[in-house]
Amino acid sequence: MKRLMKLTVLSFIALGFAAGCNEKEKTEQAAAVPQVAEAPSAVVIPDQVKGKWKAVQIEVADKNAHLKKVYTLDIGSDFKLPGSDLTLKVETFLPHFVMEGTTLTSQSNDLVNPAAQLVIREQGKEIYKGWLFSLYPATHAFQHPQYGFTLVDYKAS
């Protein structure tokens, strides 16, 4: 009976240890992905980045037609997605995206973690405002019934 209890206790300890390892791995993986706070954040564009980028390229996947097309969107300008009621606008591009507290900024002008802040309007109504990350396309990805959006390239001024 004592031997059975020891084996049971050891089994629980082993299970707990294994679960702890899995949680540690999940935590390490999550730390690698950019996290953007859901609370309002300030976007600060450093002087070394201001005016250095003129456009980004976004791949638009039409899920119904099974087609993908890349469009060049000028930063700060509206872009009407052909054949749809959607208007896209890249508000900000940060080549080295980082989050410092509640501030979103770029640590440098190097393409370390490129991110674009995208606003999508449907029939004039804002339906999405968030970030596209070229290194992590699935992170905070906008879910639209017909279209998918991926940041694929960047154009310097």
Rank of each mutant, 00 (worst) to 15 (best):
G16C: 03
V56H: 10
V49H: 02
A55N: 12
S134G: 09
K155L: 08
K52W: 04
D62T: 02
V119W: 11
E59Q: 14
V98P: 04
E122I: 14
A138Q: 11
K68W: 09
T87M: 02
K155D: 06
K26D: 12
K80S: 09
V36M: 09
P145L: 05
V70L: 11
I13F: 12
L111G: 05
P40E: 06
Q57A: 14
K125M: 14
K6V: 12
K69C: 04
E126C: 12
F79W: 14
A19P: 00
S11Y: 07
M5Q: 05
M99H: 04
Y136T: 02
K6N: 07
T105F: 12
S77V: 13
Q107P: 01
G148L: 10
L111T: 01
E91M: 03
Q123A: 15
G83F: 15
Y147P: 05
Y147F: 15
V44T: 06
V60N: 12
G124H: 00
C21Y: 14
K26I: 15
G124S: 02
I75M: 12
G101F: 12
A65C: 04
L118H: 07
H66N: 14
A39G: 07
F149A: 04
P137N: 05
F149N: 01
L81I: 06
H96Y: 11
D78A: 13
S77F: 13
P34V: 02
A138F: 08
F142G: 10
L88D: 04
F17H: 06
E126H: 08
F79H: 09
L67G: 05
K52D: 06
V112M: 04
L4W: 00
D110F: 08
G76Q: 13
S134A: 13
A141K: 11
Q146G: 07
K155R: 03
T105K: 03
K54C: 11
T8V: 10
T87P: 00
L94I: 08
D153L: 03
L135M: 05
V33Q: 06
M1R: 07
E126D: 14
E100C: 08
L94M: 05
V152I: 12
A115S: 03
K52A: 13
T27S: 03
K54N: 12
L10K: 04
H96L: 00
Q123P: 02
